[in-house]
Design a protein around this nucleic acid. Sequence first.
RNA 1: UCCUACUUAGCUCAGUUGGUUAGAGCAUCUGACUGUUAAUCAGAGGGUCGCUGGUUCAAGUCCAGCAGUGGGAGCCA
Length: 462
Amino acid sequence: MERIKVSKLLKSVEFGMDVNVKGWVRTKRGNKNVAFIALNDGSIIHNIQVVVDVEKFDEETLKLITTGSCISVIGELVESMGQGQSCEIQAKEIQVYGTADAETYPLQKKGHTLEFLREIAHLRPRTNTFGAVLRIRHAMAYGIHKYFNDKGFVYLHTPIITGSDAEGAGAMFRVTTLDAANPPKNTDGTVNFVEDFFGKSTNLTVSGQLEGELGAMALSEVYTFGPTFRAENSNTPRHLAEFWMIEPEMAFFEITDNMDLAEDFLKYLISYALENCADDLEFLNKMYDNELIERLKFVVENPFERLPYTKAIDILVNSGHKFEFPVSWGTDLQSEHERYLVENHFKKPVILTDYPRDIKAFYMKQNEDGKTVRAMDVLFPKIGEIIGGSQREEDYDKLLARIKEMNIHEEDLWWYLETRKFGTAPHAGFGLGFERLILFVSGMSNIRDVIPFPRTPKNAEF
RNA sequence: UCCUACUUAGCUCAGUUGGUUAGAGCAUCUGACUGUUAAUCAGAGGGUCGCUGGUUCAAGUCCAGCAGUGGGAGCCA
């Protein structure tokens, strides 16, 4: 008999037919006459209740059905006699695929702390919480591709191993096949990477942006969506050493077009979650964050506040609010400043633009004032910076001057500079941290709980 | 990396000014119960008190170092 998924079954109203479901047992309870098994196959947050007439089954088989075990059930789909579910399966045949020793299986019927579940990341997808988060994560990944595809963007695969050390987005992980204990050396004692696999020093990418720009200078609109690596010793609920990032890059877009796209993109994804992940969001709203759904709707329905950095500084200085770090023009905003703007002053997402050039990357387009660049950061409640982007400097001379000024090796970027030499065009783009998006959409508060197997300093288990 | 808190049963936590044999709830096991919803009720088993060292007649409790985890900060997405 063909297997039917629980998600499909719970929507079915055709009582009286025999069905086959397969899944993992969440709980079993009952008495010597009747047993109730809550079965889940991950297709939906809800379980299907399997009713077992105890005397019709072998006692030894029923004993094997414990929390965590995996079974296949054939039975009749009937209207439930009990409260709490509309339909259930009256079991006729049960096959046990895999037992789960009750004394050692770590997941209980009772709730667990997220900290404990992180220690058993191989089993936590079997919980309601992680089932919900992982389904939402999937829906967001799909929504991202759908959004860009519908808009005519080309999905560009940028390299994961990079020889460019000039991306400037943080510490990198080295990629090498050299013997760590005994690497070939130059006469001055440094490691000779000419003998390494690629004939030069290579690292894992910290951003696909520079290559993304190369694609945009031919295909007009491109986006990347792939893993990104930062070797920073960051121990916070918002950072991972390995995370996924979405980086659209658009020719002929100026900074305002970039902001429009970023806002529309975020609103599309949040709407997509509200429409397609309603059950999972309701669960998370109930269990973790009572204002989650309300907050998601608010973000979709209200325009983001847009203002230049300089104006934000004025607001902060005149706020009368006591900050731990003083506010002054020319310094980067601290978390507390961003939080004040988003959560206290505007009470909605904020897009800040035109930051001082000295605190931003070399590739950002320089404004006429000689002091600021066309950067934009999208700040969200609870999680802070969710998007960072800019219009790019398309003028060869200005870009080269900035590279020299910041002591970046221009010879490493010859290919990047050539796009400004041959058919340059105004263009812009941004980066969205995928896990930060999931954090916001799911209402979870630690980034380690929105990726299946988190990589953080001192942790690469599983 | 810095600041701070925490680490006691499978899980979540109590544990008094240092003082006999370290407790509870849940989970597990056994039994009871004719349809349960984190079922309920009764009983039982379950501990190197994170690790190392120190103070003391005596350390889960006080001190030091180390490790891990949470929260905050920095770096950023």
